[in-house]
Nucleic acid binder design. Structure first.
Lengths: 180, 180
DNA sequence: CGAGACTATGTCTAAAGTGACATAGTTGCT
DNA sequence: AGCAACTATGTCACTTTAGACATAGTCTCG
């Protein structure tokens, strides 16, 4: 009964050994933004994975009050991950606060609404520019089978998402200025 | 300290009085899919909104073991909702299981992966077709200021999302067939 | 007239996620 | 020498969400 978070950790660990701290850091940065967790959650989940024999760790000396624990995936962990990858994802409900706000837009002050969407658009454009820089740095799709393919495919999804979102914001702004 | 769910309920109630059951039904259907909640959550949240004087109810006789409670938004509720609509949304972390699976795709069996994405593509295309039917039924953007504008804008976002997602699935399938 | 679907409100438990608190060594800058 | 930032693991309390369980009247179709 490994949770999705468990598999997220396994997926990160499949690229190489990491400490809990490293995993938390990896799940905070924009590129790996398809799953997020705080370090408190990660440490707890690592205990469960350990109990299930899906990961193992080595203690090493490092900075910090305690020795660091460097985790890696066990063969059983790799097998579980492989099986999970192609299993149909359980769909989680959409929860989108901005769309919800839009749904109630009729009540709002149009000028405040314009500012809201202008800010959102700017944020999406900034992220889009960042992703485009990253895409250029990679050059093109790495070979399928290379772990870097996964990064590229995720980036590609992010690019599409930011474009769709930015376009929707622009459409909203156009609607707003038309109604003035 | 009204939660987002609270505002979701207020947004639904702003369109007219509803019972808790009606609200739950509205939040289950595809169109209103930008926020979801089970009826148990809704009843609990209605208690809180009631305590905050943001909604009120009238008891009416109807089918069911107890009399039904027909809720409507109070002036204080409308004011709170209006203010919330233009406040910047707190961003919630992306959690996307399919992208996470893709991130770990290197380990997977290509044929099983192909099936996974073919299924996903079919689901997105089906939803897209449904949304397109709905869009055609509406005809075009209702006037901003009409509550129906909110529905249309949300639908528009859904259309863009499904298109982006379907395209990404198609790209993945193309990558997969190239690598065979 | 009976079966099943629909209306309707609520409780309870468990899991998942958020954010603060606790602790403390190392590294690099000024 | 001192301060701040970074590394590093872990606990605790709280909120949110999911899903089962409980209960029971009404409506529709055959």
């Amino acid at each position: 009964m490994t949770s999705t978070l468990g598999f997220a950790i396994l997926a990160v660990l499949a690229r190489g050994e990491r400490t809990g701290y490293d995993i938390a850091a990896a799940m905070r940065r924009p590129v790996s933004y398809f799953w997020t967790a705080g370090h408190s959650q990660i440490h707890a989940e690592l205990q469960k994975l350990l109990a299930g024999n899906l990961v193992s760790f080595e203690t090493r000396h490092g900075p910090g009050p305690q020795d660091k624990k460097v985790y890696s995936v066990t063969p059983a962990g790799t097998a579980a991950l492989r099986e999970w990858v192609t299993a149909p994802p359980r769909e989680r409900p959409e929860r989108d606060e901005l769309v919800l706000k839009t749904y109630a837009a009729a009540l709002a002050d149009p000028e405040a609404l314009r500012r809201l969407f202008a800010d959102q658009l700017a944020a999406h454009e900034a992220r889009l520019a960042e992703y485009e820089r990253e895409e250029e740095a990679i050059g093109g799709p790495p070979a399928f089978g290379s772990p870097r393919f996964g990064n590229y495919a995720a980036l590609r999804c992010g690019l599409g998402y930011e474009r769709h979102r930015a376009e929707w914001c622009r459409w909203m702004l156009a609607q707003l200025s038309e109604s003035l």
